[in-house]
Design a protein around this nucleic acid. Structure first.
Length: 672
DNA sequence: GATCCTCGAGTTCT
DNA sequence: CTCGAGGATC
């Protein structure tokens, strides 16, 4: 083919720039400069020109937003900077408390907050390399999400290329993908016309569109996007405030909430909340509250994080939508530990965007407290907009014969005695693993993703395996073959082979997962990891008495007793033996190899400013070597790392005779 | 003994 | 997500 005429190339470039500018006008500013027909004309002209010059087609051309062939599945990608969740405030008091914490921590009288609406959509991270959209991923668990780049490229509100001449080397833009209400209505109308299932709310419609393996389908769903923050960045300008950062994102042509505002103090926040609340019904998108962030970024850095949420921000949620329904019955479920949980079966009711039919009533006390009876009319909402909850009873509507709920004296599944310990609120079935319900739950727990991670071993299959007496203990799983699964419902040869393969694959695991999978009472993921780290291998853990167990951080008398009791039970020892015999094996926990490095399992306390390392960096490095960092000095502390101007922690360390290190000493330890 | 923080366990719906 | 409970600290 002949070299493209210079004029064609120029025209293509100018068309691309025009189209992206109109996208921006339309999606970010909501102020189109041209009609849809004119837009379509530009678009078709570009398509025609590109068709004539395939060598000029580049991934950042607007014509490339139409989607591409379906994927087999989504890849998992790790976020460079984790995507955190926000702490919630549900009333003015909690907002006031938030402001007080901020003022105390930053030692100032009044604080400016960047306030913005909280979109009810899906958080995503967009990664721009040298100004070009390279990857996009869902939030996932915050650490890693699904690579939905192909789908995000079809969202016209998302720039394929950053505006401006000198784009940063790397810019991770965080924001929310939503479906505008009008587009949602249209989509459902179309679904109705086609006789297909309607979407229940804009959020689900957006989620469905984003999870399409075929991005051509995504491109037909109208999705919007609003940016609200940054993840990793290299070569980006430095900002002093969150609002300046948002201005920058707007300059890069990202849609940013028009309702954003900088407010001062509690009064400012509450006034903003009320104003947005008043506008809520008229907004083009669904929101579930507003977000306040300390505007000053230096302040944000100083405040840091608590567990998985930033300390400097809070989501002020609107009150959850409530609806009335009727309790048809109260059933009792049996959990893994034998806990009997009453569950209200409700007349289906649409609330908070979904149809609710069940709601947990937690325990007997809760039912008494709220005086909930069978056949009562009740107010239902979704707590935190997720878990259905019975708020209260409408007393006027109580029928004459409304039976009071009684916790059964016998397990509804196995008929064994039910016991409720004096100072506990839960009633439990006493049969342990003799109770089929507990056995099923134990197997499901064993197979769960964070334990042995056996894919395909779900509740339907476990149900059949236990009911047909094919599997009694977790060790029996490793005896299964395709023949044993044949004949079960929904178990054709293919799926049976998959399950057998998944079970085989699970043999190789880690000590921490294995301990967690055993399902010892009071031993969750975290404690299992602590135990694995402290004992390094299974054998010493089996031998440990309660005293030794209590030496492990966060293990007190109760947890120690649970563990000792579990391993004292001959049946449990047998199962563990059978699992090992079946070939379950684990690498020695990597951290265990570091025991000699003197850091693993040791507790550190930091005090004073270190010359080179920030607090967070020091913490990160100590944890990377298996150490733990806690807030205050006690006799369980192993090392106190002292910087400039140490506080009382230093005195306490001297008093208790704890090893004191300076930064250099810490670096020495880290090097070992 | 009070209080803060974190972990464990149970639960819903798509 | 929420509650309850265990552990650690003041």
């Amino acid at each position: 083919m002949s070299a493209p005429a210079a004029s064609d190339r120029q025209r293509i470039e100018s068309l691309r720039a025009d189209i992206e500018r109109h996208n921006y006008q339309y999606y970010a500013l909501d102020a189109p400069l041209i009609s849809d027909a004119e837009y379509d004309r530009l678009f078709r002209e570009l398509q025609t020109l590109e068709a004539g010059h395939p060598e000029l087609v580049s991934p950042d051309s607007p014509t490339q937003r139409i989607g591409s062939a379906p994927l087999a599945g989504f890849e998992t990608v790790k976020h460079r900077v984790s995507m955190l969740s926000l702490n919630n405030a549900f009333d003015e008091e909690e907002v006031t408390a938030f402001d007080r914490r901020m003022r105390e921590a930053l030692v100032t009288e009044r604080i400016d907050y960047a306030a913005e609406p909280k979109f009810d959509g899906l958080a995503v991270s967009l990664c721009y390399e040298h100004g070009v959209l390279a990857h996009g991923a869902t939030r996932g668990d915050g650490e890693s999400g699904e690579d939905v780049t192909a789908n995000l490229r079809t969202v016209r509100a998302i720039p394929l290329r950053l505006a401006g001449r000198n784009p940063p080397v790397l810019l991770e833009v965080r924001g929310e993908v939503v479906m505008l209400r009008a587009d949602f209505e249209q989509l459902n109308q179309a679904q109705r016309a086609k006789g297909e299932k309607e979407f229940v709310n804009p959020r689900n419609a957006a989620a469905g569109a984003l999870r399409q393996l075929d991005s051509r389908i995504t491109s037909t769903r109208k999705l919007a996007f609003f940016a609200y923050g940054l993840g990793a960045a290299e070569g980006a300008p430095a900002f002093g405030t969150h609002s300046a950062l948002l201005d920058y994102l707007a300059e890069c042509r990202f849609p940013v909430a028009k309702e954003r505002k900088v407010v001062t103090g509690v009064d400012g926040m509450l006034e903003y909340y009320r104003a947005i609340g008043g506008k809520r019904a008229g907004l083009p998108y669904d929101i579930d509250g507003v977000v306040y962030k300390v505007n000053d970024l230096a302040g944000q850095r100083e405040l840091g994080f608590v567990s998985r949420a930033p300390r400097y921000a809070v989501a002020h949620k609107f009150p959850a939508e409530e609806a009335m329904s009727e309790i048809i019955a109260i059933d009792v479920q049996v959990g893994r530990t034998g806990a009997l949980t009453p569950v209200a079966r409700l007349k289906p009711v649409f609330v908070g965007g979904v149809t609710v039919t069940n709601a947990t009533l937690h325990n007997e006390d809760e039912i008494r407290r709220k005086d909930i009876r069978i056949h009562d009319t009740v107010v239902v909402r979704r707590a935190g907009d997720v878990i259905p909850e019975v708020v209260r009873v409408i007393n006027d509507k109580r029928p004459a014969q409304a039976p009071v709920f009684e916790m059964p004296a016998a397990c509804p599944v196995c008929g064994s005695a039910v016991q409720r310990l004096e100072d506990e609120s839960v009633a439990r079935c006493t049969a342990g693993l003799y109770c089929p319900a507990q056995r099923k739950q134990a197997l499901l727990h064993f197979a769960s993703r964070r334990a042995m991670d056996i894919e395909g071993l779900g509740d339907k299959l476990v149900e059949q395996l236990v009911d047909n007496n094919i599997v009694k203990t977790s060790a029996d799983l490793y005896e299964l073959d395709v023949a044993a699964l044949a004949g079960l419902e929904r178990m054709a040869e293919k799926s049976a082979a998959n399950v057998v393969a998944a079970i085989a694959k699970s043999r190789r695991t880690t000590l921490a997962r294995f301990i967690f999978a055993l399902g010892i009472r009071n031993v969750g993921e975290r404690t299992a990891a602590d135990l694995a780290r402290a004992f390094g291998d299974l054998e010493p853990l089996l031998q440990a008495d309660e005293q030794m167990l209590q030496q492990v951080p966060d293990v007190g008398p109760v947890v120690a007793q649970s563990i000792a009791q579990f391993f004292a039970e001959p049946h449990n020892r047998d199962v563990v033996g059978q699992l090992l015999a079946a070939g379950v094996s684990f690498e020695r926990t990597p951290r265990a190899a570091n025991v000699s490095s003197r850091m693993s399992g040791r507790t550190f306390v930091l005090t004073g400013a270190l010359p080179n390392l920030s607090r967070d960096e020091a913490k990160e490095r100590i944890e990377a070597k298996g150490g733990r960092v806690t807030g205050s000095v006690s006799k369980k502390t192993d090392f106190v790392v002292v910087g400039a101007d140490p506080g009382s922690k230093y005195d306490k360390a001297v008093e208790l005779g704890i090893t004191v290190l300076d930064e250099e000493g810490l670096q020495e330890l880290l090097k070992e």
